[in-house]
């Protein structure tokens, strides 16, 4: 749509601008403020420069949380995106079953995050949980509160359970927008189902999949409540992701300087990676 230049449109945007600025800029400035100061209590603050940033960037603890975070995010992307697309392809296109599928699949998305964590906790508990008990009865030694590997498997299974539906819904929205004529043309050409997927369905889904990957990337990088309730970051530190570590430092130990520096680094990493994802995928689209 060709838009007209109208500077007065600023007045329409102003309320949103003021509200978001209030919510985003003031807290962000607070964080910046803490990140460059040292305090010994009594509300006395001293200029500390980039000390906290250096400390965080050098610390072993930050490196390992970041490593775990990246591992988590990329594992769930690798599972959820292909799985979501496969399910969307197998879903019916018309009829009563469409509504039934959509409503049931959307359910995990609307369950509060702490309930998701609690639900998976009681589902996977080795003695009393359905999953834990069944696995142990089958002779698999499984206890996610003690074994780091089991904790990771449970954590990833929980996220797949929680968020694959979002990918399914988006991919499905992309699929139903393809006109029937495309399929008829493919049929006349005698195209294989792989060819239909590769040259008709996948290109049509590119836009929604970009959105799906970006949303899943941002949200999985920010994840806090579900792993916190499920494993509390344990056993040991084995499932301590970035935000769990951050809350431990900021609200648990009240080390404001390092916590603030870590917050800023954390936010910058998300911005940078999102921007890279976004430009890479948009460049592909232009070609």
């Amino acid at each position: 749509m060709n838009k007209t230049v109208n500077q007065k449109a600023w007045f329409l945007v102003l309320p949103v601008l003021l509200l978001v600025a209030f919510n985003a800029l003031i807290p962000l400035m607070t964080v910046v403020n803490y990140s460059v100061q040292e305090t010994f209590g009594d509300n006395n603050f001293f200029w500390a420069g980039v000390l906290w940033f250096e400390e965080v960037l050098r610390s072993e603890r930050f490196h390992s949380s970041l490593g775990r975070q990246l591992f988590f995010t990329f594992s769930i992307l690798l599972i959820e995106i292909p799985l979501g697309v496969a399910i969307a392809l197998a879903m019916p296109r018309k009829g009563v079953w469409v509504s039934v599928c959509l409503v049931l699949m959307a359910m995990p998305l609307l369950i509060p995050w702490n309930v998701v964590g609690a639900m998976w906790n009681i589902f996977a508990l080795p003695e009393i949980g359905l999953l834990g008990n069944t696995l142990n009865a089958l002779g698999i030694d499984y206890n996610f509160t003690r074994q780091p590997v089991a904790a990771w498997v449970t954590l990833i299974a929980m996220d797949v359970w929680h968020w694959t539906s979002l990918v399914v819904l988006l991919a499905y929205a992309g699929l139903v927008s393809i006109p029937d004529a495309y399929y008829q043309a493919a049929k006349i050409d005698g195209a294989s189902s792989w060819a239909i997927f590769r040259f008709i369905q996948l290109p049509k889904m590119k836009r929604v999949l970009t959105i799906a990957i970006l949303l899943r990337f941002m949200d999985s990088f920010n994840i806090y409540t579900e792993p916190f309730v499920l494993t509390g970051g344990g056993p040991g530190n084995s499932t301590t992701l970035l935000s769990i570590d951050l809350v431990k430092i900021a609200l648990g130990q009240f080390d404001l300087g390092p916590a603030a520096a870590m917050s800023l680094i954390y936010f910058l990493i998300i911005l940078l990676l999102s921007w890279i994802f976004y430009t890479l995928m948009m460049r592909n689209e232009d070609q």
């Binding site: 806090y224 900021a250 954390y266 998300i270």
Partner: peptide, 17 residues
């Protein structure tokens, strides 16, 4: 970009604000 902000980053400043 505000959609990308981790809630964990904003928890403490929000409390103070």
């Amino acid at each position: 970009t505000n959609r990308m902000a981790p809630a964990a980053v904003f928890a403490l400043p929000f409390f103070q604000l």
